[in-house]
Design a protein around this nucleic acid. Sequence first.
DNA 1: CGAGTTCGATACAGACCTGTATCGAATGAC
DNA 2: GTCATTCGATACAGGTCTGTATCGAACTCG
Lengths: 220, 220
Amino acid sequence: MTTAEQPAGAASRGREHTRERLIDAAFDVFAEVGVGAASVEAIAERAGFTRGAFYSNFDSKVELFFAIADTKYAQAAAGLQAGVDPIFAAALPPGHPITAEVVEQIVTGVLRLTVTDMRWALFESEFEALALRDPEIARRFAGHSQRVAEDLAALLDGALTRIGVRFRVQAEQATRMLMTIFRSAVTTHLLAGGGPEIPPDRLADVTALALLLTERMPER
Amino acid sequence: MTTAEQPAGAASRGREHTRERLIDAAFDVFAEVGVGAASVEAIAERAGFTRGAFYSNFDSKVELFFAIADTKYAQAAAGLQAGVDPIFAAALPPGHPITAEVVEQIVTGVLRLTVTDMRWALFESEFEALALRDPEIARRFAGHSQRVAEDLAALLDGALTRIGVRFRVQAEQATRMLMTIFRSAVTTHLLAGGGPEIPPDRLADVTALALLLTERMPER
DNA sequence: CGAGTTCGATACAGACCTGTATCGAATGAC
DNA sequence: GTCATTCGATACAGGTCTGTATCGAACTCG
C-alpha cells in the first residue's frame, strides 16, 4: 500500500519523510516564537532544508499549520487511550480503598495526558489566539477541542464509575471545567518560568475542583 | 498642576492628547489583528497621525503595549469598584430572600465587570500569549493579573458575606477558579462568533461552579 | 513681537519575507 | 543504459515594515 499508491514515476521515496520533518520542525519553531513570527525560512532551516522544500510540499504557512494540528491531535488522542490504564493501576493498587486521594490521582493523571509536552500547550494557546481572529481557524479549533473534550469526558466518567464515584453535574460539564482549570494551571506554570514537569502543588485548584465535583455513588 | 509640571518651553499642549489617541487606536488595532500583525503605520493612521507622531511619543511597539496595559488595567480596576453596588441592588431588592439565584446573579455580575468590552478580552488573551514567550512581559502580566485577582477576591468575598454566604474554599482560590471558568466562557463565546453581549446561558459553567463553591453561613 | 523649542510629517535607507521561476541531481521505468 | 519525472536548491522580483534624519509649522516665553 505504501508504494503501490504512489502517483506515477519517480523520486518520491523521501517525500513523506520530508513532510514529516517539516511538520516537526514547524511545531518546534511555532512553540518557540509563535506562528506569526515564524518565517518559512526558519522552519525549513530547522528541518535541514531550504525554502524550496517547503514550497514544494505546502502552499502556505497556514496549510502547514493545519497539517500540524491534524497530525498532533491524532497523536494526542491515541496517547490518551493508551495512557489511562497505567494511571489507574498506579493510583489504585489491588485492595486499595477508594479515598479522595485516589480520585485526585486519577483526575490529574488523566488530565496530564492531554499535555504531554510543553510545546503542545504553547501550540494550543497559539491555535486559540489565531482562532479568535479567523473564523476558518476557529471552526477547526472548535472541532478538535470538541473531540478531545468528548474523549476525555468518556474516559474520566468511565474511570470514576469503575471506582464507584460519579460527577455531581453532567460529565461533559465537569470535564470541561476540569480541563479549563487544568490548562490554566499549566499556563500559570509556564508563565512562572516552570520547566517541562508540572509539580503537583501547581494543581491545587484542579484537585480542589475534582473533590467539589465528585461524590460516592450510593450503594445498593 | 496640569500645566505647571510641563518640563520647559513649548508646544506640549496636545502631547498627552496625542499619546492617548495613539493608545486608544492601538487598543483597537491590537484587538482586531493582534499585536504582532499590527504595524506602527496602521496604529498611527487609526489615530489620525503618521508614523512620525508615533516615534515621537514611543520608542517601540512594546513600550506602547505596556502603556496600554497600565492605562487599561487602571481603568478596569476603577470600573470594578464602581460597578459592584448597582449589581448588588439589582440582584437583591429590599426584602428579597437569599436564593441560589441571588448568588449566581452577584457572582456573574461581578465577573462581567472584568470584561466590559470584547476588545479587552482579546487584549488580555494577546497579553498572555506574548507573556508565554517573553519573561519581561510575563512579569508584567503576572503583576496585573495578581492585582485584579486580589481586588476581585476581596469584592466577591465581601459581597457574599453581606448576604450570609461564604466560600467553601479560600476566597482567593475560589475567585481564581471562577475567573478562569468565566474567561473560558467568554473565549468560547468569541470563538463561536458571538457579539459583544454574553448571553446568560453561556455562563452555565460559571453558575454551576458558583453553587458548588458556596454555602450558607451557619446562623448564630 | 521675536527667538527658541517641541511636535508631527515626510523622505530615505536597510532589513526581512513571501512567492515564483528556473535549474540540477537523484530516482525509477522501460 | 536511456529517458522522463520528481524534489529540493538557488536566484529573482515585489512588497512591507522599521527606525532615523530632516524639515516645517505652531506654540511659549521673554
